[in-house]
Design a protein around this nucleic acid. Structure first.
Length: 264
DNA sequence: AGTACCACCTGACGGC
DNA sequence: TGCCGTCAGGTGGTAC
């Protein structure tokens, strides 16, 4: 489920493998993955050009084309990038394949088809088009607090709202609230400035560690909730069995002892 | 503004 | 064995 840390890993992968290589061919094996662009349009934009640099905003990965415009990749919940040499070795569910002049291919792989490939004028244009909030790793404390100011909903769905802050999904929202010791259903207006400031600090710490560890969950500290999602696992902090529930329509894990539901 | 619900999609998994 | 329903999740749409 690519959230900010995974997308950052993909961004680095794209930068390391594919910058300044001339695109020779683009093949779209499932056009449903394209949004707002045709197969021809995508080919025309990419073919003969090069990726000049990469950017990321929230869960969106962008690559600037040296002849103008930016490629936009969103990974949905099963998307990833995979380089390969020979077509016979292409990964299953490759939806868009870019072949470079050096013979290397780069596939946009997306089993469940929730991802998207599109074009935009640039990062700012993308943010405006999708009405994205500030990136979760770039936002300042003041801007973060301002985004939450006046909201009345539950903290977890608000953290996952890409228009409030861009980059957090279901898993990292749970992790952040666990480490901040806040119940996921707590109304934001019940959280004072101090506790919201703690959410901000924890968010930064969690995301930076996740990026540093390449979003490899089994490399996270044993104090983290993420490796414990699933069947009847104990709270890493107090050992009680974690609670699974549904918050804002999403499967949610929390510790009923460490994350007290606010009373009244 | 918030929430509840649906849709999109496909592989995994449990039940019979 | 094999068919079936259900679930997961990011996003975006609907109605209330």
């Amino acid at each position: 489920m690519p959230e900010l840390p995974e997308v950052e890993r993909f961004r680095r992968y794209l930068a390391q493998t594919s910058l300044h290589q001339t695109v020779e061919q683009v093949s779209v094996t499932d056009r449903r993955i394209l949004h707002g662009v045709t197969v021809r349009g995508l080919g025309a934009a990419l073919k003969g050009g090069q990726f000049a640099r990469t950017a990321r905003h929230g869960k969106y990965l962008l690559a600037e084309l040296n002849r103008g415009g930016w490629l936009v990749l969103h990974f949905g919940m099963s998307g990833r990038l995979q380089q390969f040499r020979f077509l016979e070795g292409r990964p299953p569910h490759s939806r868009v394949i870019v072949r470079f002049q050096n013979g290397v291919h780069l596939a946009f792989v997306c089993m469940r088809m929730f991802g998207e490939v599109s074009l935009t004028a640039g990062p700012d244009a993308l943010v405006a088009e999708r009405r994205l909030g500030p990136d979760a790793l770039a936002v300042t404390r003041a801007a973060f607090l301002e985004q939450l100011d006046g909201r009345t909903g539950m903290i977890k769905p608000i953290l996952m709202n890409q228009r409030v802050v861009a980059g957090l999904g279901n898993l990292y929202a749970d992790e952040i609230l666990f480490q901040a010791r806040i119940h996921p259903e707590t109304p934001v207006r019940r959280l004072g400035r101090e506790r919201l400031g703690r959410v901000f600090s924890v968010m930064r710490r969690v995301l930076r560690l996740a990026v540093r560890r390449h979003a490899q969950i089994d490399a996270y500290p044993s104090s983290y909730l993420l490796p414990r999602r699933g069947d009847d696992q104990p709270c890493p902090r107090c050992g009680r069995k974690l609670v699974r529930s549904v918050v804002g329509g999403r499967g949610t894990y929390h510790c009923s002892a460490c994350q007290r539901r606010p009373r009244g």
